[in-house]
Amino acid sequence: MAAKKELLILAEYSQNKIHPVVFELLNKGQKLAEKADLNLSVLLLLPKKIDFSELIAHGADKVYYMEDPVFANPDEFIYKENILSFLAKAQIEIVLTGATNFGRSLAPRIAAGLKTGLTADCTALDIDEAGNLIQIRPAFSENILAHIKSDSRPQMATIRYQEFKKGTADRSRQGEIIALETKIKDNPNLKDIKKLSDREINIAEADIIVAGGSGVKNGEDFKLLKELADLLGGQLAASRDVVDAGLIAKEYQVGYSGQRVKPKLYFAFGISGAPQHLAGMKEAETIVAVNTDPSAPIFNLADYGIVADLYQVIPELIEMLKN
């Protein structure tokens, strides 16, 4: 009998750990692999081998890895060359990868190298009756959900961190660990690469988020929101329109084309609630919205709404919290 084909999760190993999106994809991947009758495998490229048992406990049947010091830095060219050399010989039906910045930069190169289809930022995935991957993503400002299919193999998709849930570990699971050779170790065009600093803003994992939208009049006024966020031990965030208007940096953006967040408490100040934004925060435990417009769509999603001016509400909230 021929060996089963595979659903491969292309894992990001960064900041000396496996990126948590990999475990979310394993949970989803297990269900998809079962439905499409595929093995579930993970491919990791990393500078130094680690214990891979967590990947197997979370559903991987096989863990492929390449170990080489060259993978200590995010060099898409070296990564794609080695991944393409592996994929050329493997029997892979589906490739899923986290839509981190690195994933969104690397996956398109792999897809183009294979001349295969790639769907960005899927919010849902399924398998049709013929065993094909259905890649579901919002389109046209999130007004519709497009169900996309590919007629080439492997079928590829990127998925944002925190879109799917992490599963539970089963330590009795058995899996195979396979070392691969790192074939390409040199990128003659890359002259130097250095880490400058860790990104300080990590809104994806914050318990409390204080977000501002077009109701915030200028960049300076985000300081007011920041003061409240600091007081609560939370993170400052923003909607796309203020990011696009240049009022605040992109890394603060919550939404379909920004970060997915699932905090315990989400404050939406002066955010109207465009589908683009709701796509990123709809799964917050509790949402408090403050907006002067009582008909703003954000009030349909919020648990608590205050029809008032954020410039009045925030100082008063700060005052109350200080006491």
């Binding site: 960064s14 995010p74 981190t100 910045n101 890359l190 130097d192 400058l196 990590n202 890394e251």
Partner: peptide, 17 residues
């Protein structure tokens, strides 16, 4: 050319020919 980019939850500088 040397640019600044944001990858792996960090900021990197990269120089290319």
């Amino acid at each position: 050319i040397t640019i600044k980019t944001s990858l792996w939850q960090a900021n990197y500088s990269k120089s290319f020919s």
